[in-house]
């Protein structure tokens, strides 16, 4: 048994939106260096889980606890979570009128750096850092001067989320259906970038409906979320099993157990 503090420890998490309970007792422990996949049918609560961890104001946690790097995550505001190294790649990234990617990324990075006690970066230093990141993940700088997520294709928006992740260097990255809407090549580039960003001191939670991204990013653990609970956990073989059998087995067990 490891004596270190888990990066993320979720216990019996219940959450609801507009009075409707979506999460009904989620348990999950993520250690540094690990990749977890959370799979499940549509409407199982996957995205809700991701958004609750990021602090979306529309969701109310009604029961349970979330500890992140040894502290209670739930009282923290979304920006505080981000500054503590938690990152959510959105399923539907939001367009920001008039604000270029470069300006946005620098503002976000400086907010995070300030929290870490590091000096804020000026435009020139930031461009150096950004170029290094782009080089690392093998992307060009063509959309840095374009407004955030505006006029981008679905794939470009997802790629943009991964670029943000590369710049912000989170401890825990949650990727909410980053694979959906990507063609094979785009999926490959995104998966490669995520793999390159892996380090022994960070962890990735992949929320996905499909196995295909997992053939590029091998998960250490696969969990099936259904009816707002994790109903099965296993190794990467579980994803293959799901690919074959589908989610029908759990779809029928929707009703809460207790």
């Amino acid at each position: 048994m490891s004596q270190r503090t888990p990066l993320l420890q979720v216990q019996n998490l219940h959450a609801s939106v507009d009075g409707k309970e979506i999460l009904r007792g989620v348990d999950l422990t993520v250690e540094a260096g690990e990749v977890h996949a959370i799979m499940g049918p549509n409407g199982s609560g996957k995205s809700t889980f991701a958004q609750v961890l990021a602090g979306h104001p529309a969701f109310a946690v009604t029961e349970g606890s979330v500890r992140y790097r040894g502290r209670d995550l739930l009282p923290l505001k979304p920006e505080e979570r981000a500054r503590e190294g938690l990152f959510l790649a959105f399923q539907y990234p939001v367009a920001i009128r008039g604000i270029t990617n470069a300006y946005f990324l620098r503002s976000a990075l400086n907010a995070v750096r300030k929290q870490r006690g590091e000096e804020e970066l000026g435009p020139v230093e930031f461009m150096d850092l950004l170029e290094a990141k782009l080089k690392l993940i093998g992307w060009d700088d063509s959309f840095l001067d374009r407004p955030v997520n505006e006029g981008l294709s679905g794939g470009e928006k997802k790629r943009n989320e991964i670029l943000q992740m590369a710049v912000l260097e989170p401890k825990l990255a949650i990727l909410d259906e980053t694979d959906s809407g990507l063609d094979i090549d785009a999926l490959k580039t995104v998966a490669q970038a995520v793999t390159l960003l892996r380090r022994p001191d960070n962890a990735v939670v992949l929320v996905t409906h499909y196995n295909r991204i997992l053939t590029h990013i091998a998960p250490d653990f696969v969990h099936v979320l259904s009816g707002g609970r994790i109903v099965k956990s296993g190794g990467k073989d579980l994803a293959l099993e799901l690919e074959e059998k589908g989610y029908n087995e759990w779809a029928q067990d929707e009703a809460p157990v207790a």
């Binding site: 979306h56 981000a82 959105f90 920001i96 009128r97 946005f104 976000a108 907010a111």
Partner: peptide, 21 residues
């Protein structure tokens, strides 16, 4: 919310969105 999830305070986020216009 998107901007806050990247570490910006509510004031910074509102300022950035406004300036964007």
């Amino acid at each position: 919310y998107y901007l806050r999830s990247r570490g910006l305070s509510p004031e910074m986020a509102a300022g950035m969105l406004t300036y964007g216009f």
